[in-house]
């Protein structure tokens, strides 16, 4: 079974986003960028499937700027076999990315796509669902655990009320939630080895995909600021303030 894992290079999760003073977007100059954390979980899951002998080949793909290559290398250092880099300097919307990924999945003959449930920069949470629909594949969203069951895939999903299990016919798409696994750190020898693994260079045009944006960003602003309040001395004062000052209990 060939497993495809799409990954995105995003602002590191420990860095607080700063809005540009001209309100055109978020300032990404000179800030730490990393692989989207949910994608790391997807990479880990693919590598585990390969270690278990289930996946025959694991392919990582990133649609993004030149530096997205580093993100692909990270996935290769974690153990994936080879990469595809679809290079573009535009900040593509999920629909355009899903259309490109559909072509990549077809070209690679992927039978399973594992990807993050959301990217922590734009927070759309849409690319996985869109890709599944474009491929006419079933989806297991926000996966908490996976298991192969003959030719089918059982996915335990995190849902609003708890956990839900669905059974998907293959080929299928799974989006990862935080509890699916704990991604490994790449070892130094594996980082060295990853440098020799192949990355195929592509562009959106190679796949004939129209990537024109559908949304116009009119402005990006700071959220309403919250003032820090006061410190109370003890539990009695806290109850008193909540009851008599704030009136919320």
């Amino acid at each position: 079974m060939k497993v495809l894992v799409p990954v995105k290079r995003v602002l590191d999760y420990n860095v607080k986003a700063r809005v540009k003073s001209d309100h055109s977007g978020v300032d990404l100059s000179n800030v730490k960028m990393s692989m989207n954390p949910f994608d790391e979980i997807a990479v880990e899951e693919a590598v585990r499937l390969q270690e278990a002998g289930t996946a025959t080949e694991t392919i990582v793909v990133s649609v993004g700027p030149a530096k997205a290559q580093e993100t692909i290398r990270t996935a290769l250092a974690m153990g994936m076999d080879r990469g595809v880099h679809v290079q573009t300097d535009e900040d593509l919307e999920p629909l355009a990315v899903a259309k490109i990924l559909k072509e990549v999945a077809a070209a690679e003959g992927a039978e399973l796509v594992v990807m993050g449930k959301q990217a922590i920069d734009n927070d759309y949470g849409a690319t996985g669902g869109m890709l599944a629909a474009l491929l006419d594949w079933p989806i297991g969203s926000a996966a908490n655990s996976l298991s192969l069951d003959g030719g089918a895939l059982n996915v335990v999903k995190e849902v609003d009320g708890g956990l839900q299990t669905v059974k998907l016919q293959m080929p299928a798409l799974v989006t990862t939630d935080l509890r699916l696994n704990e991604p490994r750190y790449a070892s130094l020898p594996n980082i060295m080895k990853a440098k020799r693994k192949p990355i195929e260079a592509k562009t959106p045009a190679d796949y004939g995909v129209d990537t024109a944006p559908r949304l116009k960003t009119l402005k990006v602003t700071e959220p309403a600021a919250r003032e820090a309040g006061i410190k109370v001395a003890d539990a009695a004062e806290l109850v008193n303030k909540l009851k008599n000052e704030a009136g919320v209990i």
Partner: peptide, 10 residues
Amino acid sequence: IYAGNAMATV
């Protein structure tokens, strides 16, 4: 967007 650290009007 960005965990609510920015608000986008689209």
